[in-house]
Design a protein around this nucleic acid. Structure first.
Length: 767
DNA sequence: GTCCTAAATTTTTTT
DNA sequence: AATTTAGGAC
């Protein structure tokens, strides 16, 4: 990158003096303070909806217009690519395309790679190292476990990957892992495996996600000259979502901030939801200690939500103990209560939400301004199915990712090997895809050679072309493949990369493989491959494309011009806002999630509560929380209790909606909802009371099934004796049909319209 | 080595 | 329920 020696903004400094710049207009006093306090450490505690992004972007614009720094002297870090993109865009609106000079605006990881690419040799890597994704990482570890003779059933590679990630997140290189911790995997082999893994990464010339940060920190720590050059470079530093930083990121920032000491961190401890990824809320709680003399500004004026939404969210988050404490205020007066609804099962929940959405749509509300925020992505399916039958347009944000599809990974593997042959994982993936007659046995032989000689698989394979270790058939196939790669590699600079990509897919026989495949998905896969090549065209070269995919992992969400309901997880909803928000699945075990409770105890619960807080505060006008009494998890039905979070919502901001009259167990559900006045204090006591009772009676954890709910369920089922083959039944969704088979409480019914389906007997009635 | 079937295993959130 | 893995037949 060359420095453009010109005024960074195009606006003359003279014009700025005297009159106040336009971008400061409309900021409240705290926001203005946060924008203007440019020098020295600053922590901005920005509650939900308090105009955080506006402050952030205005601050950057301000530093640039006042010429305190050139665009490339500013470091601005975000967590997601989306946030980075948005920030860039908004700065662009403020000060024009000067923002293009901000080469150090990006995610921790993308900035990490950039630094690492400049100093790869200090990390034991070679030029053009590749970035391993999650899947590659696990596959590599699997090999190491196998080589070590460790039972993969007892010690899954996935678990080791998590352990290593955890260590890396905490800034621990293998030598710094304590013996005690090393024992957490395979009786002490954890440390050795971590070491082996790192060594293997170097031979295959690759870095995993954790390395992108940890290796940089290590370089900074061991090479003061390198560190110093970056310290001098970054005159102003800005960190978004500071509450989500982990130990390495914290170390990374602190090392860099020791230069000019102009670091501004923006965050909200109440929105820290990435503890499972190593985030340390402590970082934000400790800011003043780390940066003595730091200024702290609280943004508490909320511009997003109504008083009821804010009240409900605040009441909930107040139950958390470890927080700095903020009080959000709003000037808004118009308000609707947060609605809480119970349903018989997940399908009914989806039906009710679908109805609501259609009703809102009739009132001319935009679907784009509505969102369904779920705890786990497995909840999404019910909504998708319902919306498809309704013909209601929706989009899933952060769903199954394009780049995780098998055909895309295969194709990408070919491209990766063209770019860097030492990528073992990629090579193994396609060495026999399409089938070339190179089987497991041959691959194992190659691995043995690779391991003993300390080379990559590709080099070992090349070597073995000249020996008779491999069967003749395999050797011939391998020779052909290696020669092809050599040929393609020669063309990298000669041909446009999209053209080369087509040649590779063609000549390798990969396209042909799918053309001859007669499975129904084959056509879609070929379509995806075309789409892949097309999207490559947006990048300058092959290397640029590969890097983008490694770091971003999903395609741009495309045009948001069409009006669709948004479906996403609570995690990916952070930072967004919608007029209407639906929050389904508020049930014990699902939300708060059982695993979170099991693994992290109270702190896990508090993180779940923060997640609930994030969910509610996404809403501008309306929020609807719901739970289902029964949910199908895999194949079996489980009865669930309403989430404790529902009880924690302050009564005065919540209305418990009447149950949508529907069908089946519905009637009993609504009765238990309505006839509760005899129990305890206050009129607002729906679901919570049940749970309290349940816990008292079972004396067990929250998962324990409440006796009386079971009782009622059985009672309700008892009224409906089992059906017999040939009987005529009616089903809410499928209509009338004849029972063709009975298996316990599962029936096979041949429906007049819908055809043969398997259903649970409690969902049909005699017709 | 390849292909087919049976069995086992999943059950959070993501750069 | 759906997907991945293991094992066995060819």
């Amino acid at each position: 990158m060359t420095d453009h020696k010109q005024n960074p903004t195009g606006i003359s400094a003279r014009a700025m003096q005297g009159t106040e710049p336009a971008y400061l207009k409309g900021l409240n006093p705290e926001q203005r303070d946060a924008v203007l306090s440019t020098d020295g450490p600053l922590l901005v505690l920005a509650g939900a909806g308090t105009g955080k992004t506006r402050v952030l972007t205005t601050r950057l614009a301000h530093i640039l217009t006042t010429q305190k720094a050139w665009p490339n002297q500013m470091l601005a870090v975000t967590f997601t690519n989306k946030a980075a993109r948005e920030m860039k865009e908004r700065i662009g609106h403020l000060i024009g395309n000067v923002v293009e000079g901000m080469t150090w605006l990006g995610t921790f990881h993308s900035i990490g790679v950039k630094i690492l690419r400049n100093h790869y040799e200090l990390a034991g890597l070679r030029s053009g190292f590749s970035i391993l994704d999650d899947d590659d990482q696990v596959r590599l570890l699997k090999q190491l476990l196998k080589a070590e003779g460790i039972d993969e059933k007892r010690w899954p590679a996935r678990q080791l990957a998590n352990a290593i990630d955890g260590w890396k997140n905490r800034g621990l290189t293998p030598d710094k892992v304590t013996e005690a911790e090393a024992y957490s995997f395979a009786n002490g082999l954890g440390k050795k495996l971590y070491q082996d893994y790192q060594a293997r990464l170097k031979t295959v010339n690759a870095a995993d996600f954790g390395d992108l940060l940890l290796e940089v920190v290590r370089i900074f720590q061991t090479h003061p000259d390198v560190l110093k050059s970056y310290q001098q470079k970054f005159k102003y530093m800005l960190v978004d979502e500071y509450q989500d930083t982990n130990v390495v990121q914290y170390l990374w920032l602190r090392l860099l901030a020791q230069g000019h000491r102009n670091i501004c961190c923006v965050g909200d401890d109440d929105q820290s939801i990435y503890g499972w990824r190593g985030a340390e809320v402590d970082n934000i709680l400790r800011f003043e200690k780390d940066f003595p003399g730091a200024k702290i500004i609280k943004l508490e004026r909320n511009y997003r939500s109504t008083p009821d939404i804010l009240g409900a969210a605040s009441g909930l988050i107040a139950k958390n103990e470890s927080r700095l404490g903020k009080t959000l205020r709003t000037d808004k007066t118009e308000s609707t209560l947060v609605s809480v609804r119970g349903h018989w099962d997940g399908e009914e929940e989806a039906r009710a939400i679908g109805d609501d959405i259609e009703a809102l749509q009739r009132q001319k509300e935009h679907l784009n301004d509505m969102a369904i925020l779920v705890r786990a992505s497995s909840q999404m399916r019910a909504f998708e199915e319902r919306f498809i039958t309704l013909g209601l347009p929706y989009r899933v944000i952060g769903g199954p990712r394009f780049y995780e599809r098998a055909e895309i990974r295969d194709a990408m593997s070919y491209f990766k090997i063209v770019a860097s042959p030492d990528n073992d994982l990629a090579f193994e993936r396609i060495i026999n895809t399409p089938k070339r007659g190179i089987g497991d046995a041959s691959i194992q032989k190659m691995y043995n050679v690779a391991r003993t000689s300390g080379t990559s698989l590709y080099v070992a394979a090349e070597k073995m072309l000249g020996t008779d270790e491999l069967p003749a058939k395999a050797r011939t196939a391998l020779r052909l493949l290696i020669e092809s790669f050599a040929r393609w590699r020669k063309q990298v600079d000669a041909l446009p990369h999209t053209e080369l990509a087509e040649i590779v897919l063609d000549e390798s026989g990969y396209t042909e493989m799918w053309q001859h495949d007669k499975s129904p998905e084959a056509e879609g896969r070929l379509e995806n491959l075309k789409e892949l090549v097309r999207s490559m065209g947006e990048f300058e070269n092959l290397a640029g494309f590969l890097e983008h995919v490694a770091l971003v992992m999903d395609r741009d969400t495309g045009a948001e011009t069409d009006d669709r309901v948004n479906i996403m997880t609570l995690h990916s909803a952070k930072g967004l806002e919608f007029g209407t928000v639906f929050l389904p699945g508020w049930e014990e075990g699902l939300f708060p999630h059982q695993r979170s409770l099991d693994e992290k105890g109270r702190s896990g619960l508090e993180e779940e509560r923060r997640l609930a807080y994030v969910g509610i505060t996404r809403a501008k006008h309306r929020a609807t929380i719901s739970f289902a009494q029964n949910r199908r998890i895999h194949a079996l039905w489980q009865s669930a209790m309403p989430s404790r979070f529902i009880d924690e919502l302050p009564e005065k901001h919540v209305e418990v909606a009447a149950m949508t009259s529907s069908y089946g167990g519905q009637s009993f559900a609504s009765s238990r909802f309505d006839s509760n006045t005899s129990f305890g204090k206050g009129s607002y006591d729906t679901p919570g009371w049940q749970r309290a009772q349940a816990r008292k009676s079972s004396g067990d954890t929250m998962r324990a099934s409440p006796k009386f709910i079971e009782g009622e369920m059985t009672a309700s089922f008892a009224n409906t004796p089992t059906y017999e083959t040939g009987e005529r039944v009616f089903h809410q969704k499928f209509g009338y049909g004849n029972v063709t088979e009975v298996d316990g409480n599962k029936l096979t019914v041949d429906f007049d319209k819908a055809g043969e389906k398997r259903v649970i007997d409690s969902f049909v009635e005699r017709g």
